[in-house]
Structure formats: C-alpha cells, structure tokens
Design a protein around this nucleic acid. Structure first.
Lengths: 236, 236
DNA sequence: ACCTGAACACCGTTCAAGT
DNA sequence: ACCTGAACACCGTTCAAGT
C-alpha cells in the first residue's frame, strides 16, 4: 500500500504534490481497482487528483494513452520465474504468477485485450516467456506457435465467455429444478448442469480449476512437440 | 444480402415499414459490420432507420439489450456440423464454421466477451458442442472441462493480445533492421521476429495457421483424455 | 512550462406530452 | 400502443487564455 492518499477523497481543490505521469497512472490503477474500469473517466480521475480535468492532458496524450500506461504498470508487476532445471515448471509458475497479479486488477484483462500495441512491460514479459521455451529446447517456430496457442493464458487469464461469476449460487434444490428444466430444451447442457456441482445441482465453475486444467492440457501438448521443428503437423 | 435497404442512407425522416425489434437488430448488425462497433450509437442507429432515437426504446430495453440481440443473431448464423462417425472432425468442422461466421462480423468477438449471459443461440450452440463430445465418448466432466479449455476458441476466435493485424507489412530490409534492433533489448523476441517470416524479417502472423495449430493442440490433448472420468489429473 | 475555464460535439436515457 | 421532442447528466477533447 504505497500510495497513501491515492484513494482519499479530494479535500482540497489543489493538490500539494505536483502532477506527474506516474502519479496519474498509479491513481488510475487505484481508481479502477476500487470502482471498476467503467467508472474511470478523465474527469473523475482529475477530481480524485484534486486537479482540473484538462491538466491531465499535459502528461497523458489521451485516454488511450492513459490506459496503455495503466496496463504497462500492471504487467510490470509480474515477475517471471526462471528455474533453469525445468521449462515446464518455470513456465507454469510464471503464468500462475501472472494470474495472481491480474487477479488483483480485475479490470486489466478487458483493457489488455483492447490495446493495439504491446507495452514495454509486455514486451519484456513475452521475451522472458520465449526465453523459458527456447532454454527448454523448443525451436523458434514452436515457441512462436506456443505463444499464440497460450493466447491470453500466457498472461494468466482466460476470457470466460458468458461468465457466471458474480452470480449467486442457488440452493441445491432450486439448482436441480433449473437443471431439469434446462434439460428439456438443451439435454446436454442440462446433463452438465446436473453433474457440475457435487451436490448434483447447477453451481458456478471453479475458475482456478478450469484454468489449470486448460493450462496443463496445453503444456502437455507442447511437451510432445518439444525438439521438433514445427513442420509436418497433421491437419485433419 | 437479404436486407435490401438496411444500408441505404435514410432519405425520408419517417420509415415506411414499422419499427420492430428484429429490424432494429438486423440494422444494428449491418451498421456494425460496415462502420465498426464503436460507431454504433443509439442515435446513429435511429437515424439509419429514419426514426427518432427514443423510438428504439419501445423495442429494446437499453443498449445492452441491443447488443445482446445482435450477438444472438450472429451466433444463430452458425450451423453445427454433426457427423456421427468422428467426434474430432465434427467438432473441428463446427468450430471452423463458427470461425467463418465470426470473420464476417469482426466486431462480434469483443461484444461477445462483454456479454453477461449466454443468449438463446449461444445456449443452443454449446448444447450442440457438448452433444458432439458426449457422443464421442467423453465423460460429462471432461466435456465440461473441454468447453472451458476451448474458451472463445469454441466459437471460432481467439483474442490475440496486441494483435498486429491492420499493421502494414514492412519491406524485408526494414523488417530485418527492426528485428536486429529489437534483439538488442529483447533477444528472444528479436530472434523470433527474425525467424517468423520466411524472408527472414518481421512479418504479421497468419491468424488461421495459429488458430488451427492451437485448436489441434487442444483436440489432441482431449483425445488423450477421452473415456477417462476426469479424476486424477496431475498437477505439477 | 504547466494549469485552467469555457465550450464543442458527442453519448445513453428519463419523462411528459403527443398521436 | 407506439412514437416523439426537450431535457438531463454525463462523456473526451480543443482552444485560447491565464500564471
């Protein structure tokens, strides 16, 4: 908790410390962490800093530049794990570390996906990930494919479509009824809903479990391609 | 091209055909296809329909409801391929079909990711995908994991972080210089940039190639788990 | 050099009034 | 029942003026 006053209500119209790009970015991250990214407007950020909205534009080109900087700050928090003994555990621990970081900034995934170019911190991170793969014996080509195959998972998140997070877990009996009704129109979804929760009802999925399952699936697949040159893949 | 007048400039202040939810949704899709999703405002959509902005609210709860409906329309275009002989090719062809559909609506992935709940069409699609897996011999548990592991890929897209699409391809000599300069600060990225394009320079990645690589990697991994109950997975 | 006030051109949406 | 005009409460950003 380094930024002591970042979240305190702006009591004085003037700020005591002079405005700076990094102060703006840090406050932006703090506001987004607290209120969500939709609540982050240039005007509100300025108010938080005790400053006129237009003053921000002396340190930040526009809102996109602000978001670029915030993303860079967050990705910069990630610390790649380099453990020369084993590419697989190095990469796995690195990615789970990235995941832990991004979980502290729930708004980050969506903003990261909307960026056009990789920020300096993202470049450094990807360079480290590539380094782990090359060190582990992957060809340049396969390492490149691997990065694409991991996609956002390389940074520790997966855009879960139609997420049920934030939805409350219904009591088992209600869930069972819902699942049965669902099965009438969508038998396979209904069956799944029935089976997903141990109680036999429709419960929310465990994000961490699913993330780890998919990550291991991909890492296993990559291990099988290690040492090959990436040529001659089957296409069914 | 069924909607003859959907894109014609609104010549008359009144529309001849009465407003309806489906006419609004179809026009919304058409406008987003043509101008991008950022250009789609309630006001602009109303103008396109030759109608007062507020009239839309008689058929659509709010903008989120509009986007929900547009997503439902697009996902409804996808036709799952059911070929009982082989789960793998059924699923593969289904997903590549979804991909072809979404490529016609470049705005859709981002909007899909922002939806809270699965639309009716999405429910039907996922039910079909689950059906393919169950028919193919997967346990409910593994089929469920598979859906999560596929993530957005089940719908035919992968959110490529920091995409270089839309960027022009530099001439080989310029690319080579850029790659060499990149290598000074980021050796592994530089090496990759050097190797990616056949000409030895930094070129844009082939989205289709990468999508297929990752899809096959996942399908291969799933095939290996087929028939198991999903219990007893290793965690490194 | 940095900050600011007023202003511009947009948003989504409410609400009361029309037909 | 459906449509509308005016209005509200927001946006990001330009620009000329201040210090």
């Amino acid at each position: 908790m380094p930024r002591r006053n970042a979240l305190a209500p702006a009591r004085r119209p003037r700020s005591q410390t002079p405005l700076s790009r990094s102060r703006i970015l840090e406050t932006g991250v703090a506001v987004a962490d607290r209120d969500g990214i939709d609540a982050l407007s240039m005007r509100k950020l300025a108010m938080q800093l005790g400053v006129d909205p237009m003053s921000l534009y002396n340190h930040v080109r526009d809102k996109d530049d602000l978001l670029d900087g915030m993303v860079d700050l967050v990705i910069g928090e990630i610390e790649p794990v380099i453990d020369d003994s084993d590419w697989r555990s190095s990469l796995r621990r690195t990615i789970l570390g990235a995941r832990a970081t991004l979980l502290r900034h729930p708004w980050a995934p969506r903003v990261i996906e909307s960026r056009r170019d990789a920020s300096p911190a993202a470049m450094a991170y990807y360079d480290a990930v590539l380094g782990i793969l090359r060190q582990g014996g992957f060809s340049v080509e396969i390492a490149h494919h691997a990065l694409h195959a991991l996609g956002s998972r390389a940074l520790g998140f997966s855009q879960d479509l139609f997420v049920d997070s934030g939805q409350e877990v219904p009591p088992p009996d209600v869930a069972a009824i819902a699942a049965r009704q669902l099965a009438q129109t969508h038998p396979n979804l209904g069956e799944m809903a029935m089976a997903v929760s141990h109680a036999g009802g429709l419960g929310p999925c465990d994000d961490d479990t699913e993330f780890n399952f998919a990550l291991d699936l991909i890492l296993d697949g990559l291990e099988r391609l290690r040492g090959s040159d990436g040529i001659g893949r089957r296409s069914t």
